[in-house]
Amino acid sequence: MQPSRNHPVDSVMVRQRAASFTSRSIKTEAKLAGIRLAISMLDLTTLEGKDSPEKVRALCRKAVRPYEGPIDHPVPPVAAVCVYPSHVRTAAKMLTGTGVHVASVATGFPSGQYPLEVRLRDVTAAVESGADEIDMVINRGAFLSGRHGEVAEEIRQVWQACDGAHLKIILETGELETYDNVRRASDLAIEAVDSAGVLQDGDVFIKTSTGKISPAATMPVTLVMLEAIRDHFLSTGVRIGMKPAGGIRTAKSALHYLVMVKETLGDEWLTPDLFRFGASSLTNDLLRQLLKGLTGRYMAMHDFSEA
């Protein structure tokens, strides 16, 4: 494997570019189509210590039918439900045959501060319980101390443990702090899985955050990661997926992200196979804006189911 070139990032210009996507005017049909697209890209997530089977079941129902009310044109199901490993069985049972994926965080989420064998066992257990997508965390301690080879090797082993399940690699960009680090970690993660064997489009995603650290996803950070994905595509033809997670709460903000993906990677990435939103509260704002577009009226938040 040829070591990749260092890709420095200029923070002023990357922020300026990211801000430029927010000035696109997305109205009428484009807005409604964009909202539907965003709903189909959601990883509906609950990652709390107090999660219960009941809450997971409610989330799964919401995932398959995001809006229960009368609507001309049914709302598409979301892409996946994302839970802790202990709830995978409950989710898998609810989602079999629905087309909605079962994603599980693993590898000692969210800190990853466990021995590698424990993290790998975590992955295997989640896959055996029925998860077809694994959201792993990288070893930030090793990354920040410069032990990049170690981080890459761990990612390779996790990818092998996935055993056919798709992998989302969480960089936890809020802990990496600089755009240079975000870019380096993105390149490192992509190259680690790429070196482990032939990749298909959408087998692997890179993901911004666990949602447990602030700041979570931001537009400039996501842009830097999209640029790493684009560069990998230009040199190999393989499409890596992207998942910003945490902090995206409004339909307007989701549309800004879609604009950024469209103009950085192209329309080919505008599918749940290659782009996801990790979110919990975003869903109902998307629904609310969709119904506003269809009916001309805003509905109350209590008109939408909570989970």
Partner: peptide, 21 residues
């Protein structure tokens, strides 16, 4: 706008264009 017409499908075909503004 392919995504607007086949939203029953789980996997919509890629493509999304901006309306005139």
């Amino acid at each position: 706008n392919p995504t607007a017409s086949d939203t029953n499908e789980h996997h919509t075909s890629p493509g999304w264009d901006y309306s005139p503004a």
